[in-house]
């Protein structure tokens, strides 16, 4: 592949068994995670090439025959989904699969999949106007949490404590927000103990988990939350495995909330970050991801998980 990302044709017929697995690492910035993943793949004998999603040109008529598998790590969820859609049409296996990433990138889609699978998650209401959103907030009761359908790192989350704040926030979103903000996604506020749980699930196996602590109600490491190891109990393993299967499986981070005696699935992330979780868990997360990616390359497609 040349610098612009245009595939260069090669003839591999009859030589595949002699060659290293060829992995396209589709990313934007090279973060710590991308370095760790690349190193883990190289240590396992893979031939890894970074493909910058900001520079590449994808010709739908020219499949990337130089690669056996794509590990998608784009910063932009929009770019990621677009590229994954093309890879899938080509029959080029990718981690994660398009359908899984599409489900996880949209909180409403994730909630719908979790609900359909009977997986406990915070009560969620959806409304399409400021007036109906206010009605939804009153039905749930204050405080209530408002989330954008897409987004990450705790961005644009709002805990609404009363009707006055709700009215103001909904009006501001309706007037100032893009059309994506015209869908109001409201959830019950859970009384979590200043922490949540992130479970790393690869394939169908919960390989480790962390607590994420913060005094702020948003317990996201991108917002400064600290981490410690969380033992993967039978309940945590079962719930995270079910959540992973509900969205189709792959390399996933399942976020859980402790609310009294309840353990709820908050969200499932398809592009997990893990730099703060390796030392505290003692688990080689990038190595496990690399093993999965190479297995997908050998099998020719990512496995589709289903609920047991």
């Amino acid at each position: 592949m040349d610098f612009a990302g245009t595939p260069v044709s090669r003839d591999f017929v009859g030589t595949e068994h002699l060659m290293a697995t060829r992995v396209a690492l589709l990313c934007s910035r090279v973060r710590v995670e991308e370095k760790l993943l690349r190193d883990a793949l190289v240590q396992r004998g893979a031939d890894v090439e970074r493909v910058d999603d900001r520079e590449t040109v994808i010709d739908l008529n020219v499949p990337w025959r130089d690669f056996d598998v794509v590990l998608e790590r784009s910063l932009s969820q929009t770019n990621a989904l677009a590229a994954l859609q093309v890879f899938e049409a080509w029959g080029l296996p990718a981690v994660n699969r398009y359908a899984v990433t599409a489900l996880c990138n949209d909180k409403l889609s994730t909630s719908a999949a979790l609900t359909a699978a009977g997986i406990p998650s915070p009560r969620t209401l959806v409304a399409f106007t400021p007036e109906s959103a206010l009605d939804a907030a009153e039905q749930i009761g204050y405080p209530v949490v408002l989330k954008p359908l897409t987004g990450s790192w705790g961005r644009l989350l709002a805990r609404i404590n009363d009707r006055d704040a709700a009215e103001a926030l909904f009006e501001h979103k309706a007037v100032l927000g893009s059309h994506e903000h015209s869908v109001f996604y409201l959830q019950e506020h859970c009384n979590k103990p200043a922490r949540d749980i992130r479970v790393f699930v690869i394939g169908s196996e919960p390989i480790c988990a962390i607590y994420r602590y913060a005094e702020h109600w948003i317990t996201n490491t991108a917002r400064g939350a600290t981490t410690s190891n969380c033992p993967v109990t039978a309940d945590i393993a079962s719930l995270s495995r079910r959540a992973s299967a509900a969205v189709g499986g792959g390399v996933l981070a399942v976020d859980l909330l402790e609310d009294g005696d309840r353990l709820l699935v908050s969200e499932v992330n398809a592009g997990m970050e893990f730099r703060n979780s390796i030392d505290v868990t003692g688990v080689d997360i990038p190595g496990r991801v690399a093993d999965f990616v190479l297995r997908v390359a050998r099998q020719g497609s990512a496995p589709v998980e289903v609920l047991a």
Partner: peptide, 23 residues
């Protein structure tokens, strides 16, 4: 700053976080 090249060292201003960035 985003590293463009190592040798010679060339940098460009890293773009600000976009609304669709994340996990």
């Amino acid at each position: 700053l985003e590293v463009v090249t190592i040798d010679p060292p060339v940098f460009t201003l890293a773009p600000p976080e976009e609304e669709d960035w994340g996990e």
